[in-house]
């Protein structure tokens, strides 16, 4: 029962609140970069509530059940992964074996839910968008795994988030080394892909395929997707903070550092997305499988050489 409370309070409520704030920050910063004033603090929440009230359209497509469940399953997996991350951050001693692998796989589920929802809508544009989401997933997954393996090597070959945190508490952050810094940079670039932000927003590409995977979604179901994306906007940077920056300390001054790290990561994502054009699908593939994977391999090599 306490575990359920943990999932609800930290995994869902806190993550959602921070996600909404991050989404506001992202929009505000974007507006300032474009010399606009930008939305008020609660705008993401207003948007969410408004969507909940709106009429929900369900296309007469191949599988309506898949269409309506996909956003909910995606949301649930975002909650689960946030709960696991919070649990290991709060109590590194008590994590389970190999939770790193569980987290990596759970991070795939929101993408899968978006893909399946797009597939099920029966819209050709959504199918195209979903196929692009899959190609995006194929492209960032390889360097992302290599970048995480750097942290695994640095923390004495452990696939346990708790031990990665404890090793960092003892030896200093992973990011403060040549290999760790490089790996973190790669992980942040892959995170940009995982969040499907510009320049990797091929699955949605408003100007070509009119939001692609999301094209048929409206009302409450779209609200669920937005909530999921906002939560991922917290969960993914949080994961990077845990793996490379020693986790969030929740007491005293270190909390401020942790928050600064998080805000810095979100600001970095926002800056990238506002200063770049969208890649074409094959450019995304070439970019991730080419230079990024090479760099990731270099980072792994450096880590094995103890740099």
């Amino acid at each position: 029962m306490t575990y359920l409370l943990y999932v609800f309070l930290l995994g869902f409520l806190l993550t959602a609140v921070i996600g909404f704030l991050a989404s506001w920050f992202d929009r505000k910063l974007t507006a300032r970069l474009q010399y606009r004033i930008g939305p008020p603090l609660l705008q993401p929440l207003y948007d969410f509530l408004k969507l909940l009230e709106k009429e929900t359209l369900i296309p007469k497509a191949s599988s309506q059940f898949t269409f309506v469940s996909a956003p909910l399953v995606g949301l649930i997996s975002a909650i689960t992964v946030s709960a696991i991350l919070w649990a290991s951050n709060m109590d590194p001693q008590k994590t389970f074996i190999g939770d790193l692998i569980v987290v990596i796989y759970l991070f795939l589920v929101p993408s899968i839910s978006i893909v399946l929802g797009g597939f099920a809508s029966g819209n050709p544009l959504a199918s195209l968008g979903a196929s692009r989401e899959l190609k995006l997933l194929l492209s960032y997954e390889l360097p992302f795994i290599l970048a995480i393996l750097v942290a695994v090597i640095k923390s004495d070959f452990s696939l346990r988030l708790g031990e990665i945190l404890l090793a960092q508490a003892k030896n200093g952050m992973v990011a403060v080394s040549w290999s760790g810094g490089l790996a973190m940079l790669i992980a942040v670039i892959c995170m940009q892909g995982k969040l499907a932000l510009v320049p990797f927003d091929t699955p949605e590409a408003e100007t070509e395929i009119a939001h692609g995977v999301m094209i048929e979604y409206s009302g409450a179901l779209l609200a669920a997707y937005h909530l999921m994306k906002n939560m991922m906007l917290f969960a993914l940077p949080f994961f990077i903070i845990i793996v490379y920056l020693g986790g969030l300390k929740v007491k005293g001054l270190p909390l401020l550092y942790g928050m600064l790290e998080y805000v810095g990561l979100v600001a970095f994502l926002t800056l990238i997305r506002n200063t770049n054009p969208r890649f074409r699908t094959e450019q995304v593939l070439k970019f991730f499988w080419g230079p990024v994977t090479m760099l990731a391999a270099v980072a792994v090599g450096l880590a094995l050489g103890d740099y």
Partner: peptide, 11 residues
């Protein structure tokens, strides 16, 4: 009433 079935929209 707030849920409605529609045809897909392809431009």
């Amino acid at each position: 009433k707030t849920l409605r079935q529609t045809e897909v929209f392809i431009g």
